[in-house]
Design a protein around this nucleic acid. Structure first.
Length: 653
RNA sequence: GGUCAUGUAGUUCAGUUGGUUAGAAUGCCGGCCUGUCACGCCGGAGGUCGCGAGUUCGAGUCUCGUCGUGACCGCCA
């Protein structure tokens, strides 16, 4: 115990406790260290067990830890005491979860990170002590000393439910106002309120679990990459604004009047420079900043696992990082996910799933049927550029009402289909379609044949422009996946989507944009197309997709200044602009840049996926809301005119 | 920038076609209670129906505006 603390609190160091604590140290600790390690992995597996839908104790994860922080505030945690501890005299500290005053006796549930232990106070034994205990409201911070006793009424719902503490000393370390919502697994508080009192929300088990999972994942990432010779290098946060990509957050420079830093959207150029510097394998778990509108899976500041490797081709990178992914699946979720992961071309993903991040937990592939249905007199299909469908198995029992609801779903402006055509393959072998006026049975049989549809199946057909229709079919497919319960939270299907287009036409600015970023190398065999048909050029770029979530992406970079210059040409940069914005990188390429490439993973998304959460806010300790505000500290906020003056800034009226 | 949803007690919600004093549960406060663990029983306090206009004899309810929150589209290399 540190001298500082013992001086400050010498009055509480009653010598009576010490021999007991010492005694525990020797025998209990070594044993529990071994058990602790064993229990740790088991605990994580249990946690994931919940994701799998198995019913396991919520506390199992928290109780499996070996407490190393023995001091005058506590000798044990509220999660570790069992029948073996009966008779021990010890000290606990924590928060009052619940106070049950029965008149003659009072029970307090004492909570800390590790669990809950019941304290007992008895009027007959010590009335003054019992009165003191009655005063303790929810979330009071208290310390108690007492002896572990076997309960007469055990509670099988708690891991510590066999024992209780017969308290002989209580100190209220800090009283608490009544919290605005209950600190329980299922809080009664709404989102707004819990965000405003985030520090209270973070006391709750589900959040604690997520934050600890995040920590374990970060550590597992560092361990794997360290084992593979990667070096973690920090890169600057105050950098320079660049034209491509997302909007930058900018930071005024006081010492350089009228000039601004930008916060990095990613450490992209620095990691390439590190390859040129010979670091060979770099990584960083790093904050990135993008000033764009938010979503459930987007925050203005978010965390990437940023990686770069020299002397590698695409396949080397895919192999290395599917290794990272499968090692995380194993160490965190105890799941064996075999490698190599499936590789799917971007083209295939778009035609079969209408989406560059397909959820492969279920099939229901999109098939085109344009040729099959045209020229049969149904004007809607005849006038459509593209007709396609999906097959939902065992769904021919969908009612008129359900189909109407699906029609409304695809007609929402966000999806924008005009209507929905269906074909029911009834169990009795008959067929029913919304367009059987135009398509006789033998035509409908051909539809069924194309999809290998069996009695009981349901075909859902959309028509329109290919550009609108494929994404619409993708949304419909995902909606059906949800409705039919095909998206199991405990099941994971990772894949690499490869061969992305290099460039993407932007109608607004009437020029091509880099689909990934401007340092992505084109496929050598598509090089010729760069001049004739730039939109057709494929890139050495890839995304890691798990269950329909884009977990990460990367590319093999350009490592030669001539090609880089060509790329900037295609993007419509003048030589001068390119020199001004990226001159330092192109200069660096002149001094022996090795072939290199890399990848970056959205760490928040990955944690959310493993935690089974829909929103990354649930895995970030202090997230921002929909409008980029932190409602707890109330940021962003105005600054004083003094601050603005110092920066030589005027605000527009 | 756009679409949709939502805002009522500390909290979660209900509130009929526009009609008497706006309810329930939970939490909170007080009393009783010696084996509770969703403790129980009795009593009590607690409301600018987000804000501002409008329609109306009358608005929590209808209309418009505005603000907050959430989801999505655009956007996010």
């Amino acid at each position: 115990m540190g001298g500082y603390i013992s001086e400050l609190f010498s009055e509480v160091m009653s010598p009576g406790n010490y021999p007991v604590m010492r005694y525990n140290k020797g025998s209990y600790r070594n044993f529990s260290q071994i058990i602790g390690l064993l229990c740790f992995y088991q605990g994580l597996a249990h946690e994931i067990g919940i994701i799998h839908g198995r019913k396991l104790g919520v506390f199992s994860y928290f109780c499996s830890h070996n407490f190393k922080g023995e001091n005058m505030y506590r000798t044990h945690t509220c999660g570790e005491l069992r029948m073996d501890n009966v008779g021990q005299h010890l000290t606990l500290a924590g928060w009052v979860q619940k106070n049950r005053d029965l008149g003659g006796m009072t029970f307090i549930d004492l909570r800390d990170r590790y669990g809950i232990t019941q304290l007992v106070f008895n009027m007959e034994t010590n009335a003054a002590l019992c009165e003191e205990a009655r005063k303790c409201g929810r979330e009071f911070v208290i310390r108690v000393r007492g002896s572990v006793a076997e309960r007469s009424n055990k509670n099988p719902k708690l891991p510590t439910g066999d024992i209780e503490i017969l308290v002989d000393e209580i100190s209220i370390l800090n009283a608490s106002d009544v919290p605005p919502f209950t600190i329980e697994d299922k809080s009664d508080g709404g989102d707004d309120l819990r965000m405003k009192y985030r520090y209270l929300d973070l006391r709750r088990n589900p959040l604690q679990k997520n934050i600890r999972l995040r920590h374990k994942m970060a550590k597992a990432v560092r361990d794997y990459l360290d084992d593979n010779e990667f070096v973690e290098v920090e890169t600057p946060v105050l950098i320079k604004s660049t034209p491509e990509g997302a909007r930058d957050f900018i930071v005024p420079s006081r010492m350089n009047e009228g000039q601004f830093y930008a916060l990095p959207q990613s450490p992209q150029v620095f990691k390439q420079l590190l390859m040129i510097s010979g670091y060979d394998r770099y990584f960083q778990i790093v904050k990135c900043f993008r000033d764009e509108d938010l979503r459930a899976d987007r925050q203005p500041e978010f965390t990437q696992i940023d990686c770069e490797m020299a002397f590698v081709e695409q396949e080397d990178i895919l192999t290395t990082f599917e290794g990272l992914a499968s090692s995380l699946f194993k160490s965190i979720l105890d799941l064996d996910i075999s490698t190599p992961f499936l590789r799917m071309s971007w083209d295939q993903a778009m035609t079969e799933y209408g989406n560059d991040k397909p959820d492969l937990r279920f099939g229901m592939k999109i098939k085109e049927m344009t040729e099959l249905v045209k020229g049969k007199g149904f004007p809607v299909f005849d006038q459509s550029e593209y007709v396609g469908a999906i097959k939902a198995e065992n769904s021919s029992t969908y009612s008129r009402k359900q189909l109407d609801k699906l029609t409304d779903y695809v007609r929402r402006p966000q999806i924008g289909s005009k209507g929905l055509v269906y074909l029911k393959m009834n169990e009795d072998g008959s067929m029913k379609s919304s367009v059987d006026k135009f398509y006789p049975d033998e035509e409908l049989r051909k539809w069924a044949e194309l999809f290998d549809a069996k009695p009981g199946d349901l075909l859902l057909v959309l028509a329109g422009d290919e550009k609108q229709c494929l994404p619409a079919l993708s949304e419909l497919r995902l909606e059906m996946g949800r409705q039919l319960g095909l998206m199991n939270n405990g099941e994971f299907f990772p894949l690499w989507v490869v061969d992305f287009p290099l460039l993407e036409w932007d109608d607004e600015s009437k020029r091509y944009h880099a689909m990934h970023h401007p340092f992505t190398s084109p496929k050598p065999e598509d090089m010729e197309l760069l001049k004739t048909d730039p939109g057709k050029v494929r890139a050495n770029a890839y995304d890691l997709v798990i269950n329909g979530v884009e977990i990460g992406g990367g590319s093999i970079r350009i490592h030669n200044d001539e090609l880089q210059q060509k790329m900037f040409d295609s993007l419509g940069f003048t030589k001068e602009e390119a020199q001004e914005q990226f001159g330092f990188l192109m200069n660096a390429f002149k001094y022996g840049a090795p072939p290199h490439g890399g990848v970056a993973f959205g760490f928040d998304r990955w944690v959310a996926l493993f935690a089974g959460e829909d929103s990354i806010r649930d895995v970030i300790a202090f997230p921002k809301n929909n409008s980029g505000r932190d409602v707890m500290i109330d940021s962003p906020a105005s600054v004083s005119t003094d601050q603005l003056d110092e920066l030589k800034l005027n605000l527009k009226p």
